[in-house]
Design a binder for these strands. Structure first.
Length: 693
RNA sequence: GGGCGGUUAGCUCAGCUGGUUAGAGCGCCGCAUUUACACUGCGGAGGCCGAGGGUUCGAGUCCUUCACCGCCCACCA
């Protein structure tokens, strides 16, 4: 063995050795037929950039589970995948275009699609080589991409099935519109932002109404109050009132609705159904007319009279000026705090709009999911996520599936007048027009576990339902909940037994990593400097599921030192094994081996309980402070005396056992050492060795 | 407005179903230097386990109230 551990050279050579054995593919494992299946589907990596610390954590945890189960004798499949990541990728690409002084809106959809595809393809190979560097023992022969033909086929089948079951419908409903990205977004893709703005009290005939958005008020011709509000008892539902409004006289109609909060403002409000979800609901209930005031680019329409064509924020002060001149402004409250919805990617103010879109009815899909979770058919780690997901599922609303972006799976629908055809290819006759929108990317990733397993003959039967879904707690609603619902719907089975959710990787001070703060850890830099094994165990140790992990270079350096320790201890043992032969051990040495086995048993229990952070800590502490500091030190006397052979046996047994236990955490260095050990019945690779019993 | 998580050594965090002197890593302070390893070894300092109350023979660990920090969800014009 070399005097020091050269991680760069070893990692490259060892990963190749593993790939050459073919054991990442469970079909190639020894006695593959007799093994019980174990399966993890890798969350498909967004192919729009480099691996970041979060990816490194995913790969590490999932690889630990996969390697552990493989050593425990399972037919262990970890299926890798890449994600076109629809909107996310398009946003990344649009930023790139912006920097180049270009714009998606000046390109044909075909050109834009082609460019993003090229961009994604070049990232794919990058991501894959980085995943290999992390030591991932996934089966590359089963790799899937979310735009693969067979995936799309499955997605279309599900869509059709849902449509025929009347769970999918096309509706003209209010949606979240991002004026910058020119697409609708689901509620999950928006975030609330608290703003302090002015609240205007306006005279509306005999009423006073309050609004923070006077620029939406042009078409307001309904005034709504609570049916029990005594202040307005003299006004009857449907009563018409003529009054002077922004651009002239109008006829307003009185509406009574219980959605009105009597405590707020004057208890009377006008509604803008086209641009406000609450108002939309009221209008739907009372069958009221809806007028569009603002176009999809955020400019006022002709209904705004002299303000038409103006951007809404420019128009606001001018409208107020006019209202003041007409004596319609009663009062202005300066510091009115309220929350507004913004696009989660660009922070633009969301402008609700009414648009014809495809929706998925969620209540019927949520029902069996709720039941499964309530009956603990799915185990959540950590368990408090059970409550969180149940709460969300119980309050679920319909899911808008349509996105007005090119980078995604096209919605397989054709129209001819009122007729609708579901399918990729329209009927023979002429005149069918294709739907232009694409699916929300989560509609396809929500089907990932069964879509991927169906792409290889026999896999679905063998590996579905899968065992563990490991992903970031952040995307529990986006992804996990939808996989459960769509999985149960499409396959009648819950797609996984256990959901393991990890937290964010934070910097040393506990702050979220971001490029602007300059505190991002690039996993590949760390790997380069300290070795993949050091990074891996550094990401796991002290990392409780669900909570965030603080990490910095200093910590990783400590684990590099551990690698060195492992290397040197192994070197010492090997240096003393030239004349090794198997003999019976002394009672003292037997006791040491027995102690190790006891430790191994404790660790196995922790591994089975998904407490990798504690398992890692245990083997770390044992190896360094018991094996190195005590056992090796004490053995030096024996090695020089009559008990030499016994000591050799004892050292080899504990060292090889430790390499096995450390292997899921630190695969490279342990394999390298394993290859050098003079063991009987040695396997081709440590990855198929038996886990210590 | 509702819900969830956190508060333990200077820092980052463990501590499972309550049980002898509360743990780890990093940091800090001594000592050791032709040792497998200085990317080291040995030794050490450092904690009224957020605050109050309760249950118990016994509580970081269970119950309760409060404070502060963080996150999520929600249509208040």
């Amino acid at each position: 063995m070399d005097k020091s551990y050269n991680h760069k050279e070893v990692e490259e050579r060892i990963y190749k050795l593993w790939e050459d054995t073919g054991y990442f593919n469970p079909d190639n494992l020894p006695d593959a037929k007799k093994r019980k299946p174990f399966c993890i589907i890798m969350p498909p990596t967004n192919a729009n950039g480099n691996l970041h610390a979060g990816h490194a954590l995913v790969i590490t945890i999932e690889d630990i589970m996969t390697r552990y189960k493989r050593m425990k004798g399972f037919k262990s499949l970890w299926l890798p995948g890449l994600d076109h990541a629809g909107f996310e990728t398009q946003v990344v690409y649009e930023r790139k275009l912006e920097k180049e002084g270009r714009s998606r809106f000046k390109m044909s959809p075909e050109d834009l699609y082609r460019e993003i595809l090229e961009f994604t393809n070049s990232n794919k190979s990058n991501i894959k080589s980085q995943t290999r560097k992390m030591g991932a023992s996934c089966d590359w022969s089963r790799e899937n991409f979310t735009l693969d033909e067979n995936i799309i086929k499955t997605v279309y089948e599900t869509f059709k099935k849902l449509y025929e079951a009347k769970l999918i419908y096309r509706g003209k409903k209010i949606i979240n519109w991002c004026p910058k990205h020119q697409t609708s977004l689901s509620d999950l893709e928006t975030k609330d932002e608290e703003r302090t703005e002015k609240l205007y009290y306006l005279k509306y005939g005999p009423f006073t109404i309050a609004t923070a958005r006077p620029e939406t008020k042009f078409g307001d011709k309904y005034v709504v109050m609570h049916p029990k509000d005594k202040r307005y008892k003299d006004y009857k539902e449907g009563q018409k009132i003529q009054l002077e409004w922004i651009t002239g006289p109008i006829i307003a109609t009185v509406i009574k609705d219980e959605a009105i909060d009597m405590e707020f403002g004057t208890g009377a409000m006008t509604i803008t159904p086209w641009h406000d979800p609450v108002d939309f609901e009221i209008a739907e209930r009372h069958n009221l007319e809806k007028d569009q005031i603002i176009d999809f680019r955020g400019r006022l329409l002709s209904i705004a009279g002299e303000f038409s064509g103006m951007k809404i924020l420019e128009a606001r002060p001018k409208i107020i000026e006019k209202l003041q001149a007409k004596g319609l402004v009663k009062k202005i409250e300066e510091n009115y705090k309220h929350t507004v919805k913004t696009c989660y990617k660009c922070n633009s103010l969301i402008e609700p709009q009414i648009k014809k879109q495809w929706f998925l009815k969620m209540k019927p899909l949520a029902k069996p999911a709720i039941k499964a979770i309530e009956q603990d058919k799915i185990k959540f780690i950590p368990k408090h996520y059970k409550k969180i997901i149940l709460h969300w599922l119980k309050n679920i609303i319909d899911w808008p599936l349509s996105r007005q972006i090119v980078w995604g799976i096209p919605i397989p629908v054709w129209y001819k007048g009122e007729e609708v055809f579901i399918g990729e290819n329209p009927p023979e006759e002429l005149g069918w027009v294709r739907e232009e929108d694409t699916f929300d990317t989560w509609f396809s990733s929500g089907q990932w576990p069964f879509a991927t397993l169906k792409s290889k003959e026999g896999d679905f039967k063998k590996f579905y339902p899968t065992d563990v879904m490991e992903t970031a707690g952040e995307i529990i609603f986006f992804w996990v909940a939808r996989m459960i619902m769509l999985g149960i719907y499409a396959t009648k089975k819950i797609p996984f037994k256990t959901v393991y959710l990890h937290g964010l990787v934070l910097d040393a001070k506990g702050q979220k990593m971001s490029k602007s703060k300059g505190n991002v850890i690039n996993p590949l830099d760390i790997t380069d400097k300290y070795g993949t094994d050091a990074l891996r165990i550094g990401l796991v140790m002290g990392n409780t599921p669900g909570t965030s992990l603080s990490s910095d270079e200093n910590k990783i350096r400590g684990f590099r030192n551990f690698s060195t320790k492992i290397w040197n201890a192994s070197r010492f043992v090997l240096m003393n094994l030239e004349d090794y032969k198997k003999v019976k051990m002394t009672a003292k040495d037997k006791k040491k081996v027995a102690d190790f086995k006891k430790k191994a048993k404790e660790i196995t229990k922790l591994m089975d309980d998904y407490k990798f952070y504690r398992a890692a800590e245990k083997i770390y502490g044992y190896f360094w402070h018991t094996f190195c500091d005590k056992i090796i030190e004490e053995s030096k006397k024996d090695l020089a005396g009559e008990n030499r052979a016994s000591a050799q046996n004892m050292l080899l047994e504990i060292l090889s056992g430790s390499m096995k236990i450390l292997h899921p955490f630190m695969p490279f260095i342990t394999e390298e050492i394993y290859q050098a050990l003079p063991l009987k019945n040695k396997k081709k690779s440590l990855i198929i060795e038996d886990w210590p019993k």
